[in-house]
Design a protein around this nucleic acid. Structure first.
Lengths: 210, 210, 210, 210
DNA sequence: TTTTAAGCGAGACGGTACGTCGTGTCTTGTT
DNA sequence: AACAAGACACGACGTACCGTCTCGCTTAAAA
């Protein structure tokens, strides 16, 4: 639904239909998988193109044929959906009533998952990659798009049910929640488990219908 | 509570008596200035110890004598006050009444300042540096300490004045605002400047006394 | 005695009947021409199979279908007669009398032609290719065969005419002349053009009947 | 006496006296030694900068700090005297009488030594390196300078003793001998042991006083 | 005619060396 | 001691070339 533009790995490929040997389609996935696994295991800085290629069972040049640099590869991996970022769809809250509780549940789940070491590695890599890829935040925006969409759906449901006042800026609230969660992961703020609950309370209160 | 020990540049050096040649005190500032300038201009990953030393008019080893690594240097630069982070002291709102408007004003000011390209570069660097430094959030805490202190003062004043309901988690609100502001700097394409204003409204509403 | 089997481009192919599409006969020549041109222009190490194929208007694989490697291709090019090595047939001295003057003329002509930059490039390539090809001198032997044959004919005529003493090792003299000429191409700075003339005098003197 | 210009490894070093940490003087020799050893053992194409650095107990970058490329390193090694090329000073013929026999002896010795596998590797590398270093044959000239000097000394002695006629071009004769010997090595002409003897005879005869 | 074997252009692939760059440490001579 | 200068070990980067392989298409002889 978000319809993230799927740039995929095929940039730099001539548009003329398949002349020459076609690229090994499995390699794309193998490389992205290897990138994810190694990133999660070792972090962004310890990531090596050679290690990625080795784990993908592919020559190093095959990686470079598809992606022009490490940061672009990692960026693409993050946008490919190959990486299941925890807070994207943490809980099935479809039937929750009132919907406002679903928002609270989402924040709880996100806070829990974002503490996980592998998620921390991914989010920190996001920061490094975005810094290298000077794309004006599109990477962050795209990366968090599923989470934002999920949250907005919850909030809109709240508006329908009357728990959230019509006219409140739902985007702003969603950004605040995502930002707070991500920055917690980025900076490894001492966990303080009640903090996000309190945030949820404040935001929910601010959105609540009188 | 903030109380992060100010490590400064003099680690590993008995501060009092010196046997040999004393360190060039100006070098510390020159290095921090050079680090800031280059970071703002080129971003964290394009930053080079050699370039910093050159711009500071100093040998590379002179930098390493004071800071053990690039990320620690940048971290220190951020904490040194050398870098004027926009939202640290945005507006003098001491006498504002009601205090709740001061919060709104702070968020507005922060939103405006955080749009600046050099601030974005610094905040992105903060994320990268925090990722490398494994200091359990102390960098983030110290970096945002002035802003947090300022905000908490405003919020407490609001509680006193009755505009903010007693019992609201002020720390959570402050963290949410700071996190959202910083994250917005990372993620926001320049096309949506009104976003933080909307966040301010939601949060202020959530904190407001009934 | 020379009798090096002319391998040509058609190795690994039953020559008579062909079931599938026949090879493009022009491609052989185009490839050899391209190889010569690029070799002369850029030298052996700057030579690239891709560049050869491009210049020949042919796919890279088409080159590899005919020659198994770069050095074998270059070797074959040298033996194909496609390349006009200067000293192969320098002067028509059939009727010269005494024949000893013909030898002198040959050396003079070779000395002159071998100074040409493109000849130098080829002769250097010969050395490089021979180094890679481990063919026990067959390349050298075939490459120089025309020159050797020509020289030996001259020398034998000299013996018949009495100008050259019976019993002199004509093969040795021919090899010495060819080796010296080739080596001069490799080593001689352009500043000493009279050197080979002097060699001619010495050799001719050494071969002369008392 | 030859006074080959010692370009050595120190090109690209600032002329201002030793500022900064001086280069490890032993490394130069270790690198040249390693280059020689590996070249002799494996040949020029199998030579690797990494292998050289490893064998020299040095980082790869340390090699590149001194020499800009593999071919320049090998060229320098060949000119450094580090490499004892067999035919440079094959036999002590100081007291031989007549001196003309010394020339014959030199050729015999050179022919024998040039057959040695390690010498062949070196001379073939010479061809490759000279081809890459497009220096108009200076490398060949310098490389063979000791041999040429040695031969010329022998020939001049022959002139003094009267065995060689005054006025013969000794340089030409020396070049012919060196050229023939080197080309034998380069092209691995089937050894034919009598060939060089015959060459010696022809040349000596050509040089001999009547 | 239909098969079928091969040639051909295009380009991906595994492998390997290249030369560059940055980090953090070490070693000179000078202040 | 600090300092400027710069060498050093280490290791990743991105590029280039080699020789092999696989596509889809074309070409001619064989069935």
């Amino acid at each position: 639904m978000e319809q993230v533009q799927e740039q995929g790995a095929s940039q730099g490929r001539s548009p003329g239909r398949g002349r020459g040997r076609p690229r090994n389609a499995e390699a794309d996935l193998a490389i992205l998988d290897a990138t994810r696994d190694l990133l999660v295991a070792d972090g962004y800085d310890a990531l090596t193109m050679q290690a990625i290629a080795d784990r993908a069972g592919v020559a190093r040049q095959t990686v470079y044929r598809r992606w022009p640099s490490k940061s672009r590869l990692v960026a693409d991996m993050m946008l490919s959906g190959n990486l299941a970022v925890g807070f994207e769809a943490p809980t099935d809250v479809a039937g929750t009533d009132p919907a406002i509780d679903a928002v609270r549940a989402w924040l709880h789940a996100a806070a829990r998952q974002v503490t996980d070491a592998s998620q921390v590695a991914v989010i920190r890599a996001l920061a490094s990659v975005a810094a290298e890829n000077d794309d004006d935040g599109r990477l962050y925006a795209t990366f968090t798009a599923p989470a934002r969409a999920h949250l907005l759906a919850l909030l809109r449901a709240g508006v329908e049910q009357g728990g959230i006042r019509r006219g409140a800026d739902l985007d702003a609230a969603a950004d605040a929640m995502i930002g707070a969660v991500l920055f917690t992961a980025l900076t490894r703020t001492p966990s303080r488990p009640g903090s996000l609950d309190a945030l949820a309370d404040v935001l929910v209160e601010g959105l609540a219908a009188r």
